[in-house]
């Protein structure tokens, strides 16, 4: 039966070094380009978009050049006075995804004082369901992504005590599959992005004891393809964002060394756009801030010297996590 493995082939002239200055230029100018219609569509993910771009700049040690005060004011204005949640953009309804992104940016700037912290806590608390799960907004979509967003947000605000953590853990545990991975809901297919969310959740709540460590780490290693890139599920194409999700998961499990870091690095570097800067999902595709931050963060975990250390649980600069005295659980030998 002709069912070859899905993968890409890296071109010989693909970039092999990090295009440092190009990326800074790309991140600074993103959205300024009048022809960039794609970005015009993205008001509904603006605050998260800002988190990707600003985190990427910080990892490149370039935060000083971004208009911090304006950003802080913008996020402050996106906090909904009624529910306490943060919306993607002024005038939209609040959502847990953007609430986390907003809190992450403010934490990075040490400006959590700008928002009503207790109101955010109240908002997150209101989204927890009787089975321990969280919905993303008041309309009730349940997903393990939101379990992560909830505890990440609360831990950055030092208010993890505000929700029923044991019950939240039970729900995440119920999403563990026979292959050791996690899906969005009980018995949903294992998916690297959701595995990251669940491991991040268990790292923050210090319950990594529940994980089938080596079974899961092996499944994660199996995501590496001959090109060096990582996919998110069996038989899918490699994608730079999975470099982050798989790699951060392996780091949390203390098994980063099980894959070939060298081959992965080659794949990630090949996804850089040599003309515009930025990283794309795969070599030759259009770059965007989302794949750029995850590409840089993955390179950071692989020990790339020019990039600041990133924390595998929060996807934030390690120095921020340290200065906040947060200590998410990481398994080590």
């Amino acid at each position: 039966m002709a069912t070859p493995i899905k993968d890409v082939i890296l071109k010989e002239n693909a970039p092999v070094t990090i295009l440092f200055d190009k990326h800074i230029e790309f991140l600074r100018d993103y959205g300024k380009d009048d022809n960039n219609f794609e970005f015009g569509m993205t008001d509904y993910l603006r605050v998260s978009g800002m988190y990707w771009g600003l985190t990427a700049l910080e990892l490149l040690d370039q935060t000083h050049s971004s208009p911090q005060e304006e950003i802080v004011t913008y996020i402050k204005n996106c906090q909904d006075p009624e529910t306490g949640g943060i919306s993607a953009c002024l005038g939209h309804d609040p959502h847990l995804l953007h609430t986390l992104s907003g809190v992450q940016i403010l934490a990075m700037y040490d400006r959590l004082d700008a928002i009503d912290v207790e109101a955010v806590v109240k908002y997150v608390k209101s989204l927890q369901q009787p089975d321990g799960s969280f919905t993303g907004d008041k309309w009730g979509e349940v997903d393990t992504r939101f379990s992560f967003c909830a505890v990440a947000t609360l831990s950055l605000l030092k208010r993890l005590d505000a929700v029923d953590v044991d019950n939240a853990v039970k729900f995440v545990e119920s999403c563990m599959n026979f292959d050791g991975g996690f899906g969005s809901r009980p018995l949903s297919e294992s998916h690297a992005g959701l595995i990251y969310c669940c491991l991040g959740f268990l790292s923050i709540t210090h319950r990594l004891d529940l994980v089938k460590r080596d079974v899961l780490a092996w499944w994660l290693c199996e995501r590496q393809l001959p090109s060096g890139g990582l996919n998110g599920r069996p038989e899918k194409l490699p994608d730079v964002c999975y470099s982050w999700w798989v790699l951060s998961s392996l780091t949390i499990l203390g098994r980063l060394h099980w894959i070939s870091g060298e081959k992965l690095k080659k794949f990630i570097l090949a996804c850089q756009d040599t003309e515009t800067g930025g990283f794309a999902d795969r070599p030759g595709d259009v770059p965007d801030p989302y794949h750029t931050v995850f590409g840089l963060a993955a390179l950071s975990l692989l020990g790339q010297a020019e990039i600041k250390n990133v924390n595998p649980t929060y996807c934030m600069p390690q120095h921020v996590i340290d200065s906040m005295q947060l200590s998410p659980q990481i398994l080590r030998d």
Partner: peptide, 18 residues
């Protein structure tokens, strides 16, 4: 109209219809 604050952090170019 969309309120992006006094100084928009990111300029957004919407199409006329949008």
């Amino acid at each position: 109209p969309q309120d992006d604050g006094d100084q928009p952090i990111v300029a957004i170019d919407y199409t006329e219809q949008f």
